[in-house]
């Protein structure tokens, strides 16, 4: 059953007349209980896509086209009050910067309990108790004491756990996790990912996991959406995608994963060039300026199903064939 479906989402910045298109026709879907990874380099529009699902785009950003269905309901048609009832209850999000995402003047326990209190699911004392329980579940030692502390007294890794606890306490049906492990060192990264997977499975929560780390994707995702320059360029189940990427950009991303079975020279591979900023996107295929397979045909914009077969799709006129 499809829980979330985003179709043709377009997000623009700036005043009418001088609009800059940052997200351009993005479609993706998440089924109940599954983990979908949204990957791409910095600036490809992952966070904007996520924020627009919750209706939390910042000042100056507007979704100018597209439809977002959550559980069959068009989020754009909901009254602000109805949308608020979804947020934090059925639809939760973990933000990119754990430390600054916590209010410095509110205790950790109260922030974990926030969604229970906001939605009237528990009274003060009970909510606080459940917050302590949740802090324990995410592996925070001495949860009762920590719950009474302010976020400034916690490390970055702990703040990340607190965010996870706050997002999962209401057992949401969909969790959007924006780079939940980027700020952490590798061991804690693995712990957090395991924790997300475990808690998610326990509550039947579907996860939209945003990351630019293909290693993280390989460990956690059922399906993968690859974004480049504000567009989805490839979408496939994780196993076939890793076995045989079709879009040259996906191929490049996969080569960034450190591999134990390869000499370290390969592990150091990084992508040549940078994502051009939205003002400098080329005509046609946006990856054209960095693609080794580019030719005259690529000055036209490849549709997402230009190279599709079965339930995988890729936006490329000259897709890769076979394992890379």
């Amino acid at each position: 059953m499809t829980l979330l479906s985003v179709s043709d989402l377009t997000i623009e910045a700036g005043p009418p007349g001088d609009r800059l298109r940052l997200v351009d026709g993005v479609s993706l879907s998440v089924k109940a209980g599954e983990t979908v990874a949204l990957v791409g380099e910095s600036g490809s529009g992952k966070s904007l896509t996520a924020l627009s699902i919750l209706g939390l785009l910042g000042e100056g950003l507007t979704p100018t086209a597209g439809r977002i269905l959550f559980d069959g309901r068009d989020l754009a048609t909901l009254a602000p009050e109805e949308l608020r009832r979804l947020r934090g209850a059925d639809l939760a999000m973990i933000f990119q910067e754990p430390v600054s995402s916590l209010n410095p003047l509110v205790t950790v326990g109260d922030q974990v309990a926030e969604s229970l209190i906001v939605h009237g699911r528990a009274s003060g004392a009970e909510a606080r108790e459940r917050a302590v329980e949740m802090l324990k579940r995410v592996g925070i030692p001495e949860p009762a004491r920590r719950a009474r502390q302010l976020p400034t007294e916690l490390s970055g890794g702990m703040c990340q756990r607190v965010m996870i606890a706050a997002a999962l306490i209401s057992r949401p049906r969909l969790l959007i996790a924006d780079e939940p492990t980027t700020a952490l060192d590798v061991t804690i990264q693995a712990q957090i990912l395991d924790l997300l997977a475990e808690l998610g499975a326990e509550a039947g929560t579907a996860i939209l996991l945003i990351t630019h780390d293909m290693g993280v994707v390989a460990e956690t995702a059922d399906r993968v959406c690859v974004m480049y320059g504000g567009r989805v360029v490839e979408e496939a189940a994780a196993v076939p995608l890793f076995a045989a990427p079709r879009h040259p950009y996906t191929g490049m991303l996969l080569r960034t994963i450190p591999r134990l079975d390869q000499p370290p020279k390969r592990a150091l591979y990084s992508i040549a060039g940078n994502v051009p900023s939205p003002r400098d996107w080329p005509e046609g295929c946006r990856f054209r300026t960095r693609c080794t397979r580019a030719d005259a045909a690529c000055t036209a914009l490849p549709p997402l199903d230009a190279a599709g077969e079965g339930d995988r799709r890729a936006a490329c006129f000259h897709p890769l064939e076979g394992p890379q």
């Binding site: 608020r84 995402s101 906001v118």
Partner: peptide, 26 residues
């Protein structure tokens, strides 16, 4: 503009609650 205000909105807090609980003390 601070991210924690966005977080409280993502938790479903009403504008009145965001203002009173998350902004005013700051």
């Amino acid at each position: 503009e601070r991210p924690f205000v966005r977080l409280s909105r993502a938790m479903g807090a009403s504008p009145a609650r965001v203002i009173a609980v998350h902004i005013l003390p700051n």
